[in-house]
Design a binder for these strands. Structure first.
Lengths: 199, 199
DNA sequence: ATTGTTTGCCAACGACTGTTGACGTCTTCC
DNA sequence: GGAAGACGTCAACAGTCGTTGGCAAACAAT
């Protein structure tokens, strides 16, 4: 089938092992199952079957189901730099477009949201992403540093809400929105949450 | 300990049965478990234990786990009428305040969102609520009838996103927002999604 | 007092879960 | 060559799940 995709094996450290193909297949299958089924219903047996290996291999390479999930779901939002004065007044549009690209090309985001709703560890992971990746962006464009967390939370609420209705719940009217429509409607909202004077 | 609360027994039809207290206890325990644990981890055994009865009673009265969930989670958003010309220009604030009241006093909403993310039947139920309860409100205030579904979807994305970050994921900065802050920030967003000319 | 029905508890079923350990095979190094 | 270890398969464990049927007590109707 394939040999390497954008989110494949080799995190960059350690020598290449003979089992890297298997490890990669497990991770790919795990990501897909977690994304579509959530944590509990994503069975290790089902994941192993998808990866065409024995369930015990999953345990050998990732210790736990927890360990598998932790290894399968690592998220880097790759948020762009918006500190430039010119980009700062477009931060709404830039962020919305970036998020749409991310969500449509990376099933890991769906997996994390689906699992985070019922799994504490995954919810904590999402908090970490908000704190380490979203908050710095808000800091770049917010007028008052003290309001940064609140404004980042508002930002997260709108973006995650869109992802929830469109990519997780798949509500028809949310799925039916064209990309340009979403950007046109949401960009001003995000722009206001981040840069407008507090109301 | 209590005898009757706002969401207790007797849906209004049928003769009162001797087991109504038990049925109510089961439903109350089920709502709490579904709200905090999601569908899979909300065990029938755990629910029965909370209600101080035998697990088999749950099956007798609600047939299935599915049946129990269907009986436990029935949602009426009690959305206010906003057709009046004076209320129409306040629809953003009115809806946000109404949703905050709902979410903070009704654990059933949390249950439905938590379960809907991984359970098809619950997701369909949410679609039904959007269609039957949210869409009519949007129809009352939208300029162009053709845009009603899209605008209702935007409305849902912002309100569900807030509920997700604040009541389900419990992200600290979202939990830390004061009620007045939320209303001040979100009301203009909702107002715009529903009434502004399309961008 | 006797029926029939409702309510409840108990024990158990089959299926499925995460996880473990033993065992054969293939690769690698000396 | 042989030794050491990585890789993979198989069978099984202990536990939990939803669900079922039988049986005793409490009630209702006659």
């Amino acid at each position: 089938m394939n040999g390497s995709d954008s989110t494949s094996t080799v995190p960059g450290s350690g020598a290449p092992r003979r089992s890297d193909a298997t490890r990669g297949a497990i991770l790919a299958a795990a990501r897909e199952r977690f994304a579509t089924d959530g944590y509990e219903r994503a069975t290790i047996r089902a994941i192993a079957k998808d990866a065409n290996i024995d369930p015990s291999m999953v345990m050998r390479y990732y210790r736990n189901k927890e360990g598998l999930f932790a290894a399968a779901v690592a998220i880097d939002l790759r948020l762009p730099d918006v500190s430039g004065a010119d980009r700062r007044q477009d931060v709404g549009r830039i962020l919305v477009e970036h998020f749409l690209d991310m969500w449509e090309n990376n099933e890991v985001l769906t997996a994390l949201l689906r699992v985070g709703v019922t799994n504490r560890a995954a919810a904590d992971r999402m908090q970490g992403i908000l704190r380490d990746q979203l908050l710095p962006v808000a800091r770049q464009v917010c007028p008052d540093p003290e309001q940064v967390p609140a404004r980042a939370a508002l930002l997260a609420s709108q973006l995650l809400g869109l992802a929830l209705t469109r990519y997780v719940l798949r509500m028809p009217p949310a799925v039916g929105l064209a990309r340009a429509e979403i950007v046109a409607w949401l960009a001003p909202t995000i722009q206001r949450y981040l840069t407008a004077p507090s109301p």
